[in-house]
């Protein structure tokens, strides 16, 4: 499954993996903003962005092809609009749509491929994203796999009892049962939390220090992006 691969990537040990998540998140935002404001048709700039991303992926020891193929998930959507744009006679813009969305996706993957979920959620939290939202993100991610597996098993079970079983009501029933199981699971989790002394508040982990190497990393990214943006 897609997110399991990313999870595995994020547990690497390259120097990029060791950078403070806040530095990486900030670098991602800088890159995206710079990319977003690059004018269509500045082809050299796009090439330079791609090179920057490849270098970073190399530094992180992530598979370039794996990254690219995952980032390509966005392409069907982009391609549709790019075609429409092409059709209306604006080929530069069409190309830019595809390029920008693909490069943005790759950059986001580089962040989550080098930072475990706990890292980037901690970064978001230190930027005062509401704690409640952070907790929900963590819980959703934690149980994604468990519940998706349940769907798979239920679908198989339905298939085993009749290969032609298809129907609106059947699907609705499946969703209903899935809901019920999820609800009971949530109850179970809550029980397990109470059993270990939960008193309505998660005790947050202390933030790690922001080191000078993190600052150096961020400023290098900043300089690189701005240079490309201004010069090309």
């Amino acid at each position: 499954m897609h997110h399991l691969v990313i999870d595995r990537w994020s547990r690497g040990s390259s120097s990029l993996h060791q950078r403070d998540p806040r530095a990486k998140l900030a670098a991602l935002l800088v890159f995206l903003v710079v990319l977003s404001t690059t004018r269509p048709g500045a082809q050299w700039a796009f090439v330079a962005y791609a090179v920057l991303l490849i270098l970073t992926a190399n530094l992180a020891r992530l598979p370039i092809l794996g990254l690219a193929s995952r980032a390509a998930l966005v392409l069907p959507f982009s391609a549709t609009f790019a075609l429409l744009t092409w059709w209306s006679g604006d080929s530069l813009r069409a190309l830019a749509l595809a390029e920008k969305s693909f490069l943005s996706g790759t950059a986001a993957l580089l962040l989550v491929g080098t930072t475990p979920l706990t890292g980037w959620t901690a970064a978001l939290e230190s930027w005062r994203v509401p704690r409640m939202l952070i907790l929900v993100i963590q819980f959703v991610y934690r149980y994604l796999f468990v519940i998706a597996e349940q769907v798979q098993r239920m679908r198989w079970a339905a298939l085993c009892r009749g290969p032609k079983q298809r129907g609106f009501r059947l699907a609705a029933g499946l969703v209903g049962v899935l809901f019920a199981r999820s609800w009971q699971r949530a109850d179970g989790i809550y029980h397990a939390m109470l059993a270990r002394g939960f008193r309505g508040r998660f005790v947050p982990a202390p933030p790690a220090p922001f080191r000078s190497s993190d600052a150096l990393f961020l400023s290098t990214c900043l300089a690189g992006c701005l240079a490309i943006r201004m010069l090309l």
Binding site: V136, Q138, V140, Y143, I147, A186
Partner: peptide
């Protein structure tokens, strides 16, 4: 936990 599990 309910909100999280419902998201999943």
């Amino acid at each position: 936990p309910l909100l999280g599990v419902m998201g999943a």
